[in-house]
Design a protein around this nucleic acid. Structure first.
Lengths: 248, 248
DNA sequence: TAACAATATTTGGCTAGACTAACTTTCGTG
DNA sequence: CACGAAAGTTAGTCTAGCCAAATATTGTTA
């Protein structure tokens, strides 16, 4: 019964739990439930429950039965370290090994537990220290896109795609075919359901699709801060100008 | 209790055991003992014993208590698949990510259990389907160098280095500093202990060092059974000619 | 061949991680 | 507010790995 986790000595499963708990709150505030974790891992709630007790005993989460679980400082640090590895690996797989953006997640999920820090450092160098992964997520997980909103709640108008959630591969695949990628310019011409104009045509999005795309309003005439968002992957859409705007 | 192993469903530990058992007999005939496996993994004989019972139950090894363990056909196939992954990964780490030849083994040891077949296929393409890993071992493990001999038993004369065992990192490191790498030409000027001339100077080898280097006699004027051995790694030694000949 | 040393296995005990089944708490709704 | 459904936990069991200690086998050598 370690009090403070030995850092580095965490099992792959424990790392997965931490990452899942952290990721759940990155884009929507609600902490993840036991059922949510069970579904995410394709396991039972019983398994998750006992895992939470172990994580709590290791000082990685705050947990009392029937209450929502929250990461401790230590737990969050581990989680973010794993998230960074994961996203860097995704970027590497896409850019150097020619993986499709629908394929990178699963491979990175396995690699992130296996590769050494040296490996991570080497691919980071090789890639030139990228800021964003193939889905548009910030590789340094402390730099979230504060003012992004999902297409599901967007009103009619022009937007720039910031990220596409990779939670569901089929959704990701469909959106990719529509030309919905980070940095692409899109126009919402109707809502509920969302009707989207992209470089590839006009599409009516399903709930899940509209939920997966996070955008920033395009206000082409106004100046602001900026952000490079170094378009990863091959075919990047978006021919219009304005890539400015404050990013925290 | 599965009868026939589910293929692909083997745990990392099981894969490690199979690989270790296979590797033990690649360069010297004696099958590995329980004690040998225990030492190799830094574990106890008790652990190995029970693991052997499990492997036998899964149909991967033939095993009766107090008798030496042998791989079944299935077990050997799995083992060779793992060996191939391992050596391809080593080559990849050395050539693409700039790892030293003393560093590749440990990283590959972890990666080989994590990467997908797709990953392996991609790096194989990227590397142009190499034949030999950084230590000179055949990446396709069914193609051993039948007529190689260790320097320990070599008589005075000229040789070409075929492989350097990576079993002990310090030995590997020392040999690397002496310029002893696959394809290097060396001259044995004395035996017991072995005195070796290389491009970098003259060195007296320790037992372990002489044991780790496998060579082929250089008979510069005669065509004989030898190999292409497409020099992996960066700095390749050996200025003399002769790279001809069939390899089975 | 008897005895000892070396080698190997069994026994019993531990943790992580998983499951099912039974039980408990919480939440939503009439 | 009370009651049923949903969510969560506990209890009991299993396997893979790991270990130390006790036991068994094999091999060597006087």
């Amino acid at each position: 019964m370690r009090d403070q986790a030995d850092l580095d000595t965490l099992s792959a499963k424990v790392q997965d739990y931490l990452k899942a708990i952290w990721t759940a709150t990155e884009w929507d505030g609600d902490p993840i439930t036991t059922a949510g974790l069970a579904e995410h891992f394709g396991t039972t709630m019983a398994t998750v429950s006992s895992a939470m007790r172990r994580l709590a005993a290791a000082g990685l989460v705050e947990y009392r039965p029937y209450k929502p679980v929250r990461l401790t400082r230590t737990g969050a640090e581990h989680a973010m370290a794993m998230v960074r590895r994961h996203r860097l690996l995704e970027t590497y797989l896409a850019e150097q090994l020619g993986y499709e953006w629908t394929q990178v997640h699963d491979e990175a999920e396995l690699l992130e537990h296996a590769v050494s820090d040296l490996f991570i450092a080497r691919i980071d160098d090789l890639l030139g220290h990228p800021e964003f992964d193939p889905h548009g997520d910030a590789i340094d997980p402390s730099k979230g896109s504060a003012d992004a909103e999902p297409l599901r709640v967007a009103s009619v108008g022009d937007y720039r795609v910031l990220r596409v959630s990779d939670a569901q591969v089929d959704v990701l695949s469909a959106l990719g075919d529509m030309g919905v990628r980070p940095q692409a310019h899109v126009r919402v011409s109707d809502t509920t359901p969302v009707v989207l104009q992209t470089a590839k045509g006009v599409f009516t999005l399903s709930e899940a699709e509209a939920e997966a795309v996070w955008v920033l309003a395009a206000h082409p005439k106004r100046g602001g801060g900026s952000s490079a968002h170094g378009g990863s992957g091959s075919g990047n859409a978006g021919s219009l100008g304005g890539r400015r705007s404050p990013r925290r």
